[in-house]
Measured scan of single mutants.
Amino acid sequence: VKVYLPNKQRTVVTVRDGMSVYDSLDKALKVRGLNQDCCVVYRLIKGRKTVTAWDTAIAPLDGEELIVE
């Protein structure tokens, strides 16, 4: 899953069964001094942002793009 992060940064996270968006992005956010409490995650669908819950399973999102703001 390709993830666009604040400050024009981006990362790619590996999809693993049983993991949530929260778990999958935890390290990427912490390395950048961010956490899930201060950010909102969106799914990018056909160029439009849709709010996605942090506890959403990451497996069904394989191949999609997320935006964290």
Rank of each mutant, 00 (worst) to 15 (best):
G47W: 01
A28T: 09
R16D: 11
Q9F: 05
D26Q: 15
V12C: 07
G33K: 06
D55Q: 13
C39G: 01
S24V: 14
E64S: 11
G63R: 02
I45K: 15
W54L: 03
V12W: 12
C38L: 09
V51W: 14
T56A: 14
S20F: 02
K49H: 04
C39Q: 00
Q9M: 10
L5M: 12
C38H: 13
A53V: 04
E65L: 06
V15L: 11
D17M: 10
L29Q: 01
L34H: 02
E64Y: 08
S24A: 15
K2W: 07
V41H: 04
D26P: 00
Y22G: 15
V41N: 02
S20P: 03
G47A: 05
G63C: 12
C39V: 10
W54N: 01
C38K: 15
G63H: 04
R16T: 11
V1F: 06
I58W: 11
D17P: 15
T14D: 09
G18P: 03
A53G: 13
N7K: 07
Y22P: 00
C38W: 09
W54D: 03
V31A: 15
L25V: 04
R10E: 15
D55F: 01
I58K: 02
N7Q: 08
L34A: 00
S24D: 01
E65T: 13
T14V: 10
Q36Y: 09
K8V: 03
R48F: 08
T56M: 11
V31D: 08
C39T: 07
G47N: 03
V41S: 05
Y22W: 12
T11P: 00
V15R: 02
K30Q: 08
V41C: 10
M19Q: 14
D62E: 10
A28K: 04
T14K: 13
A53K: 12
S20W: 02
A59T: 14
S20D: 07
K2L: 06
S24I: 14
V13D: 03
R32P: 04
A59K: 12
V3A: 03
T11W: 03
A28D: 06
A59D: 12
M19I: 06
K2T: 14
V13G: 00
T50R: 09
E65P: 08
Y22Q: 14
T56Y: 08
T11G: 01
R16H: 15
Q36I: 12
V3Q: 00
S20G: 01
L44Q: 07
E64C: 04
V31L: 14
E64I: 04
V3S: 02
V15H: 10
Q9H: 04
G33T: 04
D37S: 09
R43D: 01
V13F: 02
V21I: 04
E69K: 04
N35M: 07
R10W: 15
C38M: 15
L44R: 11
T14C: 08
T52G: 00
C38R: 11
D62A: 14
K49E: 02
D62S: 14
M19C: 11
K2G: 06
I58E: 04
Q36N: 04
D62T: 11
L25A: 01
T52H: 04
A28C: 08
W54S: 02
M19S: 11
V15E: 08
G33C: 03
L29R: 00
R48M: 09
E64K: 07
A53Q: 12
G33Y: 01
V13N: 04
C39D: 01
R32C: 10
K2E: 06
L25Q: 00
V3F: 04
T14H: 09
P60Q: 15
K8H: 11
M19K: 08
C39Y: 05
D17T: 09
V3W: 01
G63W: 02
R32S: 10
Q9V: 13
R43Q: 11
V1S: 05
